[in-house]
């Protein structure tokens, strides 16, 4: 136990040290400037304390971010308003719902395209270049277009954001599943042929189970991409709710602490979601006897 914990703690401690140091370096000019205007002489200790407690620092110190996160999560729960529109739980939920829906749509689209590519020669030759081209378009450029177009046909709210998530998350699923569905060896396919198996029997009993390790790896990448998609999708909607909205509002008003707390919440959410897939992967592959 200690052998695992110690290296991790060392890394975390180093990161915090660097972060605090960077906060001093980046926020010092402002602190000195303020002191000069007030006609005061700023000692080193006072300067450091000042750089770690500014209201709108260039780089907020970790404890400032932690305090902000607590204020918008735990403290609000204690006050009985855990799901108010100012809490990070509420914003995380908004972003999560778009992420989850987009992830499901993206996975379904990715698996469907992969099956088409593996089974249909025409799709094999024609679809992949388009799939790759779709990912070379900057998502920031196309996201507002999707929102505007869908709004024009009367679709708003969750679905447009989920579409952007889907747009990002189907790609790793297609690539992984094409590889996975093609992973059975020539011998295994010949064997199916000697039993005169139908294409659907070969799919359900050989190709699909063979592709599971590939699928789960793709799902992890897809889930992370989906979260990025949902956040990007929230930026052009006028910033009403969601972690993307918090980021945008924070940058409008120079609330760097708010931006960082939203960023860290997003990272935590991503880690939790990817970890969840990892758990399902472990259970599934173990039950399949593949680990």
């Amino acid at each position: 136990m200690m052998r695992n914990v110690l290296p991790i703690l060392t890394v975390v401690a180093t990161l915090f040290a660097l972060w605090y140091g960077a906060a001093v370096a980046l926020n010092a000019p402002w602190a000195r400037d303020q002191a000069a205007r007030a006609g005061q002489e700023l000692g080193f200790g006072a300067m450091v304390a000042e750089t770690w407690s500014q209201e709108k620092p260039k780089l907020p110190a970790p404890h400032q971010v932690a305090a902000e996160i607590w204020k918008t999560t735990g403290a609000m729960v204690l006050a009985g308003r855990g799901f108010s529109k100012r809490s990070l739980f509420y914003h995380s939920w908004i972003t999560f719902s778009a992420t989850a829906l987009g992830f499901l749509l993206g996975t379904a689209l990715g698996v469907a395209l992969a099956i088409g590519i593996v089974y249909n020669r025409t799709m094999d030759m024609s679809v992949m270049p388009w799939v790759i081209a779709s990912q070379t378009i900057p998502i920031l450029a196309i996201a507002p277009m999707i929102i505007v177009v869908l709004n024009a046909v009367g679709i708003s709210g969750l679905l447009p954001k989920a579409m952007i998530s889907m747009y990002l998350s189907f790609f790793p699923v297609v690539v992984g599943m094409v590889k996975g569905l093609r992973s059975p060896s020539a011998m295994q396919l010949d064997q199916m042929r000697t039993w005169n198996a139908t294409p659907s029997q070969t799919f359900w009993r050989l190709r699909l189970p063979s592709s599971m390790p590939y699928l789960f790896t793709s799902l992890k990448v897809g889930m992370a991409a989906s979260l990025v998609g949902a956040i990007v999708g929230e930026l052009p909607t006028g910033a009403v709710a969601g972690l993307g909205a918090r980021l945008l509002a924070g940058s409008y008003y120079g609330q760097t602490i708010q931006i960082w707390s939203a960023l860290i919440t997003a990272a935590t959410l991503a880690a939790a979601l990817v970890g969840l897939i990892g758990l399902v992967q472990r259970i599934t592959l173990k039950r399949m006897g593949m680990v």
Binding site: S185, Q191, W195, M212, M288, G289
Partner: peptide
């Protein structure tokens, strides 16, 4: 003969599915 499953074929490798007992 193949369609009527007239033969069993044993390959060089066992080729058992790891996810099946």
């Amino acid at each position: 003969a193949r369609r009527s499953r007239a033969y069993g074929y044993v390959f060089q490798a066992a080729g058992l599915y790891p996810w099946r007992t």
